[in-house]
């Protein structure tokens, strides 16, 4: 079994793969446009001073998402990502 977590809980510097996207239709479309779909590898790169929003590396681009939006995205850590302290490219 892979470990699942939501995007907002992904620690800084760690990566995981998207398994499910639960967002309002507009946001869902925007995320798809940005290439965030099932199977996409996401890395948490930056945390803003308040801890919300965070910036994630998605398909080579750095995208800031608010916690309320990141909470709807479910991830799984895959075996090769553990120990998951992958370089935050």
């Amino acid at each position: 079994m892979y470990e699942t977590l939501c995007l907002s809980a992904l620690p800084e510097g760690e990566s995981a793969y998207v398994t499910e996207v639960n967002a309002a239709p507009a946001m869902d479309r925007r995320l798809t446009d940005l290439g965030l779909v099932r199977g996409t590898r996401v890395t948490c790169v930056l945390r803003s001073p308040a801890g919300d929003p965070c910036a994630y590396l998605i398909r080579g681009a750095l995208i800031a998402l608010r916690r309320s939006d990141a909470e709807g995205i479910t991830l799984e850590r895959r075996a090769q990502e553990q120990p998951a302290r992958a370089v935050a490219t």
């Binding site: 309002a24 507009a26 995320l31």
Partner: peptide, 11 residues
């Protein structure tokens, strides 16, 4: 309520 948004941070 605030709508969702995604902001790109370019290199």
């Amino acid at each position: 309520v605030p709508s969702s948004f995604a902001l790109e941070l370019p290199p």
